[in-house]
């Protein structure tokens, strides 16, 4: 680990001023950052600690949620459990209780891939860690890698569960920087790798995430987060599905679906969502066909063709579970 300087930011302005310097990185809960420092994945000159900033609010309002970037995962989950089950489930199935007590929501969105080559204790051929060094995973171990949206430069997936649930709920990220405040939908927050997998989000190095807004709606209650993984707890998703539905007597009027573990960003299933409108939740064949509509464009790698099948089955299951919730509620 390279030595670095450390300072606490007294307020937002100071934090923003600090990160104008490209050698300075932000640390919140530190559950990701400290690992990166130890493995040489991040080598900042300076860390600015933003935990003192008043960004930890968790506000549930009629028009939606405003979640502060520094709210802890374990604090947010119970507040959103009743009206936004998909969010609470995505938080509670992530990491471990100890980690969730430390981990901030903003930090969760900005965690980086679990690609085993990227996470190695030494530098392996990895364009994300060392641009131009190649991608050892492309023709290597691909079991946990992407089936959508990858490029020859990088085939990694984004590991956040929470981001997938947010993407399904059309949440937006509030960003501040020297150019002022802006709002970006979670679906547009992440970049696909293209030629440069080092740039993962639209957040500029001199910007901070301050909050996340989640609009309310009839679909948020009939929602579910399904995380598929071999270990019953404390494992990243092999595939995950966030589903939120509005329906009228079991006939879908509005469906929102996002997948995790399949791409460098939460993967919305636009075609499926469109195809589901007007479909009865009892009509398994129609649901299956609607799900399949989004998978024509799947491009599995040598070792992960099974994820195409798995993701479709998981989507169907999540849809059914979300639908049953709506009916119980109404």
């Amino acid at each position: 680990m390279k030595a670095f300087a450390y300072a606490k930011a007294p307020d937002l302005a100071a934090a923003l001023a600090a990160i104008e310097d490209p050698g300075t990185s932000v640390i919140a809960g530190g559950t990701e950052m400290v690992n990166w420092l130890k493995e040489g994945i991040a080598t900042p000159e300076r860390l600015v600690d933003i935990n003192g900033l008043p960004l930890d609010g968790i506000d549930a309002r009629p028009e939606g949620l405003r979640l502060g970037a520094l709210a802890r995962m374990s604090d947010a989950a119970p507040v959103v459990a009743a009206e936004y089950p998909v969010l609470a489930e995505s938080l509670l199935c992530a990491a471990s209780p100890q980690l969730r007590n430390m981990a901030s929501l903003g930090g969760n969105l900005l965690q980086r891939t679990r690609c085993p080559y990227f996470r190695a204790e030494v530098l392996l051929p990895c364009n994300k860690r060392a641009p131009g060094s190649g991608c050892a995973a492309r023709h290597g171990e691909t079991r946990t890698q992407a089936i959508f949206g990858w490029s020859d430069a990088c085939v990694a997936t984004h590991p956040s569960d929470f981001a997938v649930a947010l993407a399904a709920l059309d949440a937006t990220v509030i960003i501040v920087g020297p150019r002022g405040e802006r709002t970006v939908p979670v679906t547009g927050f992440y970049r696909l790798p293209g030629d440069d997998p080092t740039v993962e989000t639209v957040l500029a190095p001199d910007e901070l995430v301050t909050a996340i807004d989640v609009p309310a709606g009839p679909h948020t209650r009939a929602s579910h987060y399904l995380k598929v993984r071999e270990r019953a707890s404390y494992e990243f998703a092999m595939v995950a599905v966030a589903a939120a539905l509005a329906h009228d007597g079991g006939v879908v009027t509005d469906a929102r679906l996002a997948l995790g573990g399949v791409a460098a960003r939460p993967w919305r299933l636009d075609r499926t969502e469109a195809a589901l409108r007007g479909v009865s939740l009892d009509d398994t064949e129609a649901l299956r066909a609607a799900v399949a509509a989004s998978f024509a464009e799947a491009r599995p790698l040598a070792g992960n063709a099974f994820k195409v099948k798995l993701a479709q089955r998981a989507t169907l299951r999540a849809l059914t579970t979300a639908g049953s919730r709506g009916m119980v509620a109404s």
């Binding site: 679990r114 085993p116 080559y117 996470r119 190695a120 204790e121 392996l124 050892a136 023709h139 290597g140 171990e141 071999e230 270990r231 019953a232 707890s233 404390y234 494992e235 990243f236």
Partner: peptide, 25 residues
């Protein structure tokens, strides 16, 4: 523990990549 054939290394040398059971299992 996957021995990466190209690199000749155990690929995931950490407990997030090498899974052992937890209580929930």
């Amino acid at each position: 523990s996957i021995l990466e054939p190209q690199l000749g290394r155990f690929l995931s040398k950490n407990m997030a990549g090498y899974l052992v059971p937890v209580c929930a299992d």
